[in-house]
Design a protein around this nucleic acid. Structure first.
Lengths: 209, 209
DNA sequence: TTGCTTGTTGAACGATCGTACAACAGCTGG
DNA sequence: CCAGCTGTTGTACGATCGTTCAACAAGCAA
């Protein structure tokens, strides 16, 4: 069943190194989303990509390096989606900030598959120092971009840091619950809650009473 | 090295079934925290508990059932810690709400080990339906308790649901980042951000301008 | 067409996984 | 002190894991 027709045509096709690497990375992401970190075996990834298990060792030297590169690739995809959302929002600073924040609730970010992939990476943070470092760098970059957008909306410099942290926390928490239990609340409600939070962060503090 | 002194004393001790089960569950939680879901093998858990691998099959029938019961046990511990924080806060409704929310940032909840354990459970949600169901039930219960505390603080009934969801999301996000990157912000700052969010949720909406 | 380069295969290896089970030994009632 | 009960052990088994590597064949140059 593995090699049915040895005479009916080419039993495999050669591919350009970059294309093959990308197809393996994408297959790894799909397996991580489908079966979690525990199910991301060399054989499962190779089968998902439609190639032989040995090819992963040939291109990445091992499954750990493939997972690491998949992490970087998925992170780059998320960053690109956020950038695209900001660019599509026009020139108004507050609209750009809103777009950046609410983009996490819509595809391709607000997806069960992406959450499963991300959880798989989180589950590796404990055991692998390189993954932990990769995560720290990515989150610092995410907060820095958010700080810049908040500053453009008039948030004071001394409040920027905590404003970015709390906003990130709220968005991540909403994203997490939205993906884990899609029936609990809607994407629109998530956006409304995030905007309400942004209102409180951007506007100057009101006096009590 | 495994059985050094067969004549110097008892090579093992018998334990009451409940005590042995509990020690295995606690060992499983430690292994999950230390090595993630992928490292929670029967042998690793048995070694952590100081018993033979076969004993896990004897008490739980398999490693899956042990992980499931460990999930329930850790969840019960978190609930108990939250209840204790609320009880210690006295009778003032707002103080009880604050205690419930900020308890997630201090031990035994706000701990790297507990986060690692929780991530291990999340990583099983995709592959195992029983774990997913367990998670849904637990989160619904968490939000229900939070809704009750919010109602005691005067939050309108029609705003309760989203108030509980957004508060849960913020707390979970802060808890997640606080455990993943402890150096990014402090427990006190997390509490301050959560209290600020609660102020916005409890107080009536202010008019713009 | 022929030969070469090399991307690709698939089997083989040792390690580790979860599970099963017969033998052992700590405890307790006699 | 002795026998029985049973909690506990540790090995054995098949499956699957990551990795390695000799052989194969697709595609290109001549």
């Amino acid at each position: 069943m593995s090699t049915l027709p040895p005479t009916l045509g080419p039993s495999f096709r050669r591919a350009e190194p970059d294309a093959r690497r990308l197809s393996l990375i994408e297959a790894c992401a799909r397996v991580l989303a489908k079966a979690g970190a525990a199910g991301a075996s060399v054989r499962a990834i190779a089968q998902e990509a439609g190639v032989s298990p040995g090819l992963i060792g040939h291109y990445f030297g091992g499954v750990d390096a493939l997972v690491t590169e998949t992490y970087a690739h998925v992170d780059a995809q998320v960053s690109a989606a956020l950038d695209a959302a900001v660019a599509a929002a026009g020139g108004d600073p507050c609209a750009r900030l809103e777009a950046f924040v609410t983009a996490s609730f819509a595809p391709p970010i607000g997806t069960r598959a992406l959450l499963a992939t991300w959880i798989a990476f989180w589950s590796l943070v404990t055991a692998r120092g390189d993954i932990a470092r990769q995560h720290d760098e990515q989150y610092a970059g995410y907060r820095a971009r958010l700080e810049a957008l908040l500053a453009d909306c008039g948030v004071a410099a001394d409040a920027l840091r905590l404003a970015a942290i709390s906003t990130t926390a709220l968005v991540d928490g909403l994203w997490l619950e939205l993906c884990l239990s899609p029936g609990c609340f809607t994407v629109a409600e998530a956006g409304a809650m995030a905007r309400r939070h942004l209102d409180g962060v951007i506007s100057p503090d009101r006096a009590p009473g």
